[in-house]
Design a protein around this nucleic acid. Sequence first.
DNA 1: GATGTGTGCAAGTACCTGCTTGCTTGCACA
DNA 2: TGTGCAAGCAAGCAGGTACTTGCACACATC
Lengths: 202, 202
Amino acid sequence: MSAATDTAERILDAASELFATHGYAATTTRAIAERAGVNEVTIFRRFESKLGVLRALGERLARLQAGRAVASAPDSANVRDTLLALARMEIRGTIEGGALAMRLAFDATSVPEVRELIGEGVPANLEGLAEYLAEHQATGDLRADIDPRVMAEAFFGLTSSYVMYRMVMGAADLPVDVETDEGIEQLFDVFWSGASQRGQEP
Amino acid sequence: MSAATDTAERILDAASELFATHGYAATTTRAIAERAGVNEVTIFRRFESKLGVLRALGERLARLQAGRAVASAPDSANVRDTLLALARMEIRGTIEGGALAMRLAFDATSVPEVRELIGEGVPANLEGLAEYLAEHQATGDLRADIDPRVMAEAFFGLTSSYVMYRMVMGAADLPVDVETDEGIEQLFDVFWSGASQRGQEP
DNA sequence: GATGTGTGCAAGTACCTGCTTGCTTGCACA
DNA sequence: TGTGCAAGCAAGCAGGTACTTGCACACATC
């Protein structure tokens, strides 16, 4: 059993990397097999089709990302710390599995099956954070004159484009350590200052 | 001559739309021909190859975007207005030609020729805005404790992800009128408040 | 009226893609 | 020793892709 699941895992790993960098359509099953060190036929025996690989990958991704939902962030009394932790979590998650998700989101417009898989992920995330933000607008932690959905979009815009510029477009280097990286904190600070606007009242 | 350039233009228009929504690799020359209302052979006679179409498109795009560089924004005394105008310009430009550029940036990782075309565009833009921001940090219009490159990244993160969420991921609707849309102003306001932090001194 | 140019149409080539088939090999368990 | 399962290997199929070729038609210009 160990050996069997191992090959399946290796196939998924290879597919994940290739899908993330080349996209779903541009990745051939032959390439997946080669990278996994596995015969191409094995892929079809284990996953039935190329789409089957994507589906299995989707499940693994869902399992992986389930742990880093908005709710799972430590809701300390300090909203700023909570959001900063969320930003770091989001960026780390995007680097790990999100680069794949981002690519697939692009592929979704051309490959209908991909669209179903990615589906409501992005809008749902936006909505979830917007709710959280709205709560803290009510308590006065955040400025109330901005639509919480716009604010959520600003937040995800920061984190997703941070990764996009680095991983996909190669505009800069990835941080050595996401948890302590100074650049992320500065980037977050721009958002936070804008969203909280502490001391802005005249 | 008029009729001849017209068909070439129609081919480029069709290719632009298809590349933007489906990506370079996933767009077939047949599809381009069909959308342009032109025989497939004509494409090869005019542009030699599929890559030739992309190259011609790249030139047209460069011509189109040359007019909307950072420098071309009216540098009024008011930095906020300048940046807001730039944000609107950037979003409109991204909707018009940037969605294509964004998609091609993704394709660049799989299609090496595409990478050359997109090339240094993104980093150069970042650098250009960073310079502008640094100048106004020096004059006190913007807070100085943030790396100007980080600030530029926050700016482009906002504008590019604004379009990405809407056009590519279909998370929301595009604005009816970019120039007056309230959502863009709110989104920009989050950035601006964070970047200027007016009245933040204790 | 001849010539050149831009385009359409039909057919075909060479290659790549996802996927299949038939057969063999190695390993585990009884 | 025998049975079953996971995997490899070689070959191939059907469909799609970029791209080519040869021929016909329209419409200008000289």
